[in-house]
Amino acid sequence: MTVEEVVSATAQQERPVFFTAGGDTLLGIFGSPTTEPKGTAVVLLPGGWRTTSTARNRVLVRLSRELAGRGYHTFRIDYRGVGESTGVLERFDMDELSTDDLKASIEWIEQQGISQFVLVGFCFGGWTAVSYASDVPGAEGVVLISVPALLTGETAVARLARRTSMWRVIRQGLRPWAIRSLLSADRRRIYKRFLAAKVRSFLPTRRPSDAPHAPIARDLTVRFQVPLATLLDRDVPILFLYGTEDEELEGFELSKRGPLGEVLSRSDSLIEVRLAPGRIHGLDRLEYQDAIIENVTDWISRRDGHDPTRVK
């Protein structure tokens, strides 16, 4: 077994760049490898909801620098209207992916003489990657982290209400702090919304399964069926990474019974589905962040046929 020593990059290997996308200028951070370049750039796309290019607790910075230690160029961006980029992001919508921003990023990287790419996208960024990757001749791999397959339109309060047992609601509601907090108008509003959602959770859903799921508003994968199939036809490997407790995993498994399943079954060897323990989608635990960095780095390194074993 070959054991290679990996020296992670630092800001020494990075440079900020402004590039144009439509009428706006976006910030990108271009990272160079600390070892012999493989000639491939990994483009890192954050999730939606105005997430900056660093992502929570600089996960994308750490991931970039790990990848640069393995010979990859990296590029992370602030979407239009986010972070240091100009423009205004009026609203967030899965129907308005940041493909123009990704297209401009790819063009900028190509100007640096690099024409092979791996696209890594979190949630919204994942579908942004899929929707444009089929137009990138040099796409060599796509990593999709906690991409939502089904949209339910369910709010956080409704989700919490659905998952909380009636017994638990009663027990918590009788606690002294809960009763005291009724003095606050804000709290009363939240409790009212929660109770209304709890009542609604007892109503029948439109989902065919017997499980107590939220109703499905839309299967997103229908939209991405063609670009996914195009990528697989071109032998571009795809990694789906989910947390075992991600709500998105439930949707992914259900959508595999539909059009997504048809696409994936055609190219078993090109698709890998990895599961990391916990709910990685929100990146809201350090252990989830480490799991994402480890899995993405490992998959990209193995895709190139290199042993990613790290010795420091």
């Binding site: 939606g48 909801w49 105005r50 997430t51 209207g81 205004v88 992001l89 009026e90 967030f92």
Partner: peptide, 11 residues
């Protein structure tokens, strides 16, 4: 807690 689902700061 993030509130990115709301309006843009510009708005």
């Amino acid at each position: 807690f993030a509130d990115g689902r709301g309006e843009a700061a510009e708005a």
